[in-house]
Design a protein around this nucleic acid. Structure first.
Ligand SMILES: [Mn+2]
Ligand SMILES: [Mn+2]
Ligand SMILES: [Mn+2]
Ligand SMILES: [Mn+2]
Lengths: 220, 220
DNA sequence: AAAATTTTTATGGTTGACCTTATTATTCCA
DNA sequence: TGGAATAATAAGGTCAACCATAAAAATTTT
């Protein structure tokens, strides 16, 4: 099935798309933004990925992963999250740095190695950021959760996962105790897309809406 | 000191040079051969590496690692061999496959991660192929050993390390029990660069000279 | 229905790491 | 010392991923 090894760049595009597809269609502009490339570059890449049958692009509508693309993305995410487990649980790497190290290793990991690692780890179900680990065949379902940014005033919520990747953002969330397993309550919502004020562990914490989008919660 | 991350290609060139420099100068042609590129490509790369101060090339003489280049190479080798230990001892990866997997991971491993891994492994001194692991600062000294290809008829030797990298070569050596820790005796040397016949563990094994160069031994 | 915005395409460039096919320079050897 | 072998250069390409600038196309907003 999978003949040639895909480039790191290809894998990162597919992974980003999978992570963004809580909506069925991903806007190429958003994708570019997330990956830190120009919209032109992202469009070029979509053409290449389309030719390889990994994505389908409906101009002015957006891009979708194909079945094949989704499977590849699931495998990348699986490797990434397994490495996160290893780095955090065994190498004692700092929580906020785990993602960035795993994000390199994920592209250097053959399937046989991936499964040996899963075995070693005891086939964990979630990574340290709370995200579920796709199955060995690459299949996965998005977490049944909503971004913290969509929670209404006064509502309490249980943090299921943190989807941020940047080390500084993760460090900030860690400092403020907005972590998987914690409960938070929205005590204020400033107007004009202003920050949320959350009550978490007896303290009030301000969180901008963009960052709140990376925190996945379940209303309680 | 080390500002930009070096490419995988760069790291592989430096590593190959370090492994080949039991002689002080490495012929660019040999290097090309070992890396599976054309001599022209290797020459181009020597120019680039020269500009970066990683190698010094004396035309028609050969290339040398600079101090900086040797340090980088030592670090790459350290990562590689630490990963070999992990893959073999903890993930139970097949001995002959350990090298190839480690050879991918070595380029995706930041210094902080390398040291956490070393700690996790208990700072091992040698990898599963018997090679010593360079220090955290990249320093290393070549193993005090000679290639099996230079052993004379009738002589017995102790295998210290196997330097082969190709999975099929490693598999062959494994099958024939030519492994670190074993003792072998040269019972026949065929003329015209013919194969050696070795007595190892009560059996006679034929080994071509090119392969024998990858087996490092100490006369006993 | 305009106007504004977003998206896509068109061009033309760059860089690293490869390649092939000459040609030239040097070293080695008989 | 004169070839043969080896090493290095020159010249011209490819390919994946990026970039910028500009123009065109579609969508969204007013
Ligand atoms: Mn629409
Ligand atoms: Mn990555
Ligand atoms: Mn390698
Ligand atoms: Mn050129």
């Amino acid at each position: 099935m999978n003949l040639k090894p895909l480039s790191e760049s290809t894998e990162m595009y597919l992974k980003a798309m999978a992570e963004m597809s809580y909506q069925d269609v991903v806007a190429v502009g958003r994708l570019a933004e997330r990956l830190g490339v120009t919209a032109v570059s992202a469009n070029e890449m979509m053409r290449r990925l389309g030719e390889q049958g990994l994505v389908s692009h409906t101009p002015y509508k957006g891009v979708n992963l194909t079945k094949k693309g989704r499977e590849v993305a699931g495998n990348v995410i699986r490797r990434q999250r397994l490495w996160e487990c290893f780095l955090y649980d065994h190498l004692k790497i700092e929580w906020s740095q785990v993602y960035e190290f795993a994000c390199s290793l994920e592209h250097a990991t053959a399937p046989e190695l991936t499964e040996a690692l899963a075995e070693f780890l005891g086939n964990p179900k979630t990574c340290p950021r709370g995200n579920p680990i796709p199955a060995a065949d690459g299949s996965f379902k998005p977490l049944d959760a909503i971004p913290l940014s969509e929670i209404k005033l006064g509502q309490a919520a249980h943090v299921l996962a943190v989807n941020a990747t940047a080390t500084d953002v993760l460090k900030y969330l860690q400092e403020k105790n907005i972590l998987p397993g914690r409960d938070v309550t929205v005590v204020e919502v400033a107007p004009m897309q202003g920050p949320l004020t959350l009550r978490v562990g007896g303290k009030d914490v301000a969180l901008g809406l963009p960052m709140a989008e990376f925190v996945l919660v379940k209303i309680i």
